[in-house]
Design a protein around this nucleic acid. Sequence first.
RNA 1: GGCCCCGUCGUCUAGAGGCCUAGGACACAGCCCUUUCACGGCUGCGACACGGGUUCGAAUCCCGUCGGGGUCACCA
Length: 517
Amino acid sequence: MVRTRFAPSPTGYLHIGGVRTALFCWLFARGQGGEFILRIDDTDQQRNVESALAPILHGLKWLGIDWDEGPDIGGPYGPYYQSQRQDNYRAAAARLLASGHAYLDYATPEEIAAEREAAQKEKRPFLYSRKYMAATPEQQAEFAGQGRSAVVRLKMPREGKLVLDDLIRGRVEFDWALEQDHVIQRADGSCLYHLASVVDDNDFEITHVIRAEEHLSNTPRQIFILQALGYPLPVYAHLPFVAEPGSKNKLSKRKLDTYLKNRDFAQVNEHGQAIAQALGLEVAKETFNPVVVDFYEQVGYLPDAIINYLALLGWSLDDQREFFTRDELIQSFSLDRVGKAGASFDPKKLWSFEDHYMRELEPTKKLELMLPYLQRAGLIADPAPAADLDKLAQIIAASGDRLKVAGDILAYADFFFAPELTYDQDAFEKRLRKPGAADLLARYRETLAALATWDVATLEQATHEFLNAAGIKIGDIIHAIRVATTGKAVGPGLYDCLAILGREETLRRIDQSLAAI
RNA sequence: GGCCCCGUCGUCUAGAGGCCUAGGACACAGCCCUUUCACGGCUGCGACACGGGUUCGAAUCCCGUCGGGGUCACCA
């Protein structure tokens, strides 16, 4: 049985790179008929683990990445928080100590640092002298007598090589003599990440460790622990990084300001910020931007689009398939089709997947998705009146491909529901204050008022007849009509807008605009 | 700096010696369509990091150089 795990530390937000890793673990497990486990790496014991974890679990759920065992649902191998498994780690550290694979070290951090600096100065690789290694009870007593306290260090081999067969990297060799005697347990008894990680992977019976490339150089010490404990080795697969837009640097939340200078990133960001603002959301740029998954949920992206895009970030099936349903992804995903080079995150390409999936979404689904946005903006009541629902369906149909994310509905529908028309000032000046515009608009109003029926076809025909009679071209008036009735320079097709508005409201708005000119 | 990984269009990638005067997608530019916006159609721009080998033949194999990245914690 294949078992993979994703082990986030509770940071308070779900990073796009982290999701990609989780996705590959999940895809692989599901494709193999295996299990996907969530484990929380909180050995650092921060205060509000629960609140820092919630957004991460929520984000994964939103994307449809589900787990078989984890902190919220438990499982046969629980608990799934490392902070609650310290006893296991301590027991392992004790075994390592007993078997001579680790030792008590009484050096102070300053002494270690001094040795490291000396080595650096002499340009030789640093290796701890083991000067304060206490091999016997006598030595322990002596060092302790000096007021020193002990940490547990790994006693790494100082000769030979480790050969790692990575599923993605292939064969990778490391010199044992270059591996440090890492601390695995602090003086206060708390255990560190590498020990914890390895012990848990074994306890959870993880068969495939699929993680980001940054862990590749940590692998030797982890394998050392595994072997010392007599545990079987999992299969390793180190994924290439998700890199910054337009660069090869690892994507990080820290460098937001740099990304904002990237045109594509900035564009996607601004679009999202505008929607957040229309919703009245209070957002901080540190937690609400295209690096954070929550951004996409708030703005109204489709999980399928994100999953599809992310799957292709470092993986491909062949030279033609681009669009995959979840099941197809699970069916076709394989680790040997994962590339080795880092892949940079391209917000515009994600956008194009979003475009594709939104376009294919059933109208009823779109409505379901978009209605809450209008309700949150206070434009439609909750529960929604049938008339509003009907109107919204018409607006969505009329907007067609213009709606890329659910939040876009705000810009395309607000003027249908808002009690008062608000004008785009530039458009108002340009289209309505234009000489002759008011006069034409007033005459057009009479044409509309005289119409026997009120639908798109009639409106279009009547408008063209009006143009002929007036001896003008459509471009001479259509913009004025749009601004006068919707307040905006852009929107769904004009006849659609008028049809949805209805005769009474259309005439009312034209009159109001005429008065405002 | 040591160690490790990586290196095909701006980006994601196809390519496992001849199918490659290197294919697709996104982006970009231009044109067409058009009442705005968006869509759509067409066209264009655009890459095998470099240098040596091996071979009849190399993007594909080998070596070197250069470049990029990661990692070197009593963080995870």
